[in-house]
Design a protein around this nucleic acid. Structure first.
Length: 273
DNA sequence: GGAGATGTTTCAAG
DNA sequence: GCTTGAAACATCTC
């Protein structure tokens, strides 16, 4: 489920543990989410340490602990973070549980495409090296029109929808946001990136930032529902219709583009393919 | 029962 | 080298 706004929401679920000391680390030993990080390492490095900070970058999150220990992860398709009372009843897919002073912090993930890792930088102010090398976040000053333009040119044969899913340039964009951005741009998702004119590149850049900002406002704190004026609430319904007035209730099309189900309006997003 | 799901990695083929 | 497509991962829902 999680794209950048949902990851931001989940990060805040664990913020209730900030400033608290981890008393105990419970792990489901065989869960696939530990494939890059043995449960014993988590216990050794986190137990007894205070959680100092929380961060997100695209779909990645990390929590800083005393002595520069960093618990980071990715939620895959079905991962989630939540907090609960310390004596909560774990359910089947609660693979990692940090028992803090007042709350329990829980990582659950039914499909287990998610993963976690632990890094040591020695300082609670120094993020792990791999984190510092991540590309500019979409709402940061480093995410420039030039960056988007060069990336599109470099991958000219890639449909714009697929380009938007590339985390090397669009960190945090996932399937629904990519469709939303194409729809805002009024550009068919199958249009090849190399065929975009400079004005369309500008529109791509602008729509990406706008969708990211609005998604964070709606979902990032309280997980609200995106309004009916977006593509989002219509995209999975069979027979979903474009909410743009000028499209007069045109029915959305759904097709796979490069392996991912894509939804678009054949009227306002006509042309290209 | 079957298909498909808001993701990423890996591998084989062109 | 590059790109592309498919498979794999594991479970749930419609």
């Amino acid at each position: 489920m999680p794209e950048l706004a949902e990851v931001e929401f989940y990060r805040h679920q664990w913020d209730s543990g900030l400033g608290e000391r981890i008393a105990e680390v419970r792990t489901h030993p065989s869960a696939r989410i530990f494939r890059n990080c043995p449960a014993s390492t988590l216990r050794r490095d986190l137990a007894g340490r205070k959680m100092m900070s929380s961060h997100v970058h695209g779909k990645n999150w990390t929590f800083g602990f005393e002595d520069g220990k960093w618990l980071s992860g990715h939620l895959g398709m079905t991962g989630a973070l939540r907090s609960a009372e310390k004596d909560f009843m774990p359910s089947k897919h609660d693979h990692l549980i940090l028992i803090a002073e007042e709350t329990a912090l829980i990582f659950s993930d039914p499909r287990m495409f998610g993963r976690i890792r632990l890094d040591k930088t020695g300082s609670a102010n120094l993020l792990p090296q791999w984190w510092r090398k991540l590309p500019p976040q979409i709402l940061s000053a480093g995410f420039t029109k030039k960056l988007v333009s060069e990336f599109a040119a470099k991958h000219g044969g890639t449909p714009i929808k697929t380009l938007l899913l590339d985390q090397r340039c669009f960190p945090g964009i996932g399937n629904w946001m990519a469709d939303e951005i194409c729809w805002r741009m009024e550009t068919a998702p199958g249009v090849l990136s190399g065929n975009l004119e400079q004005a369309e590149i500008s529109e791509l850049w602008r729509s990406t930032r706008r969708v990211a900002r609005q998604a964070l406002q709606v979902i990032g704190r309280n997980w609200g529902n995106p309004p009916d004026s977006w593509l989002f609430p219509h995209r999975w319904k069979t027979g979903g219709r474009c909410p743009r007035k000028s499209c007069h209730g045109a029915e959305f099309r759904r097709e796979k583009i490069r392996g991912r189900t894509t939804c678009w309006c054949p009227v306002c997003q006509a042309g290209g393919e």
